[in-house]
Computed example of a mutant assay.
Amino acid sequence: MENTRTSGRTAADNAAVAPGSACGLGAVAVLALGTFVVGTDAFIVSAFLPGMAKDLAVTTAMAAHSVTAFALAYACLAPVISAFTAAIERRRLLVLALLSLGLANIGSALAPSLDLLIVARIMAAAAAAAYTPNAGAVAAAMVRPEIRARALAVVIGGLTAATTLGIPLGHVVSAVLNWRAALVLVGVLSALAALGISSIMPDRPGGARMAVRNRLAVLRHRKVLVILPLTVTGMAAGYVPYAFTLPVLDALTGPSGSATAMLFCYGLGAVAGNYLSGWATDRAGPISVLACAYALMSWALGAMAFASGDPPVSRIVVAGFMICWGASSWAQTPAQQHRLISRAPQEASLVVGLNSSAIYLGIAIGTAIGGAVMPAGVAQTLWYGSALAGIALCYALAVR
């Protein structure tokens, strides 16, 4: 999923960086640390949601509103922030974005109530929206043209590493200390990444400003409008139960203490799904990949819903479910990105950026649905996700 964020830069962003400098991949690695922090921050709440809800004296479903707020804020603010920051020197922008992300996480950790936590999460989303697209654009411009794809892969690797390492690490820290300590850790990592970028990255000038309405003008393309709803629906399906991963695991295996390992399995599936989707899309076409992804997601979430009624389930089986869930969720974006670029090749950066906003809109909708259904039980939440994945499959085939 997240490779859309790194490659979804706008025309102004492209203008902001000079092509083909002679920097090596080592200088790009510090950008990957920043994307690792952003990816961890975006989804870390799922690693300690029940404990956070208890500490704030709210229900788990209410605490999930913080996840919805982050995703919705990212979706709405990304085009606006991109327009208003287009002319800012790139290194300064990236450093300020990471420092703002760190402060927002410290604010989240100190929040005494859910309302203040949501405000801090919105601030974190704004900082993430300022950092991630620009990190990809800068990475591509810092290296020689022949290794540009590898540079983007390094930055994307920071995002995928967040699913395999960052989220499980957040769960461990929250279990050993508390959820506030996990958010403080994200804040510290943000500051370290900002320091690294400030020390290593060369100056990169900003580009020409572009009005928000110009960035959204591509929505007049009928073929683009047909594709984007699938991004929203598919991401919503995968994220209906995601914020409630810990209750889901408890329903499947019981409170066995295997949550960290299961979160790691989800991350492995996400990495594999993202890579295999790009490979398969080049060979079999995006619709075939999307159909397989949505079918797998619908089956995995449905199987988990069925199994949750009679715990405990073998950890090996649950690990397989988590791998399939992660793979199907993260396999969507490369195929969708391919479809959008093929429909509007002259406006590729704009449509990919809009797809990034659609991703977070889907996450916000999915989390909101999960929060509304969760009081009825884990199985019902999983069934809703499975049904949405089925709807996404039908829609993908209908508009192929």
Rank of each mutant, 00 (worst) to 15 (best):
T164D: 03
A137K: 05
I156N: 12
L152N: 13
V154Q: 01
S174N: 09
I156W: 04
A137N: 10
P168A: 09
L169V: 14
L177M: 13
R144N: 05
A151Q: 00
V172K: 05
R150K: 13
A161N: 10
G158K: 10
G170K: 09
A135E: 04
N178Y: 04
H171V: 09
S174F: 12
P133M: 05
G166A: 15
T164H: 04
L183Y: 15
T160N: 14
L177W: 13
A141I: 06
V138K: 00
L165W: 13
V176R: 08
P168M: 12
G136Y: 04
I147E: 01
A149Q: 10
V173Y: 06
L152K: 11
V143T: 01
I156P: 07
S174W: 12
A151S: 13
A161F: 09
V138T: 14
R148V: 02
A175R: 09
A139E: 02
L159M: 13
P145H: 06
V154N: 03
T164W: 09
R180S: 13
E146R: 04
N178R: 05
A149M: 05
V176I: 15
P133Y: 10
I147V: 15
A135C: 09
G157M: 10
V173K: 01
L165I: 15
L165R: 10
A137C: 10
R150D: 00
G136C: 10
L165N: 11
R144L: 05
A141L: 12
A161C: 14
R148L: 02
T160A: 14
L183G: 13
A139C: 11
I156D: 06
L159S: 09
V155Y: 09
A149E: 05
A151P: 03
T160W: 00
R148H: 08
E146W: 01
V155Q: 02
R148A: 00
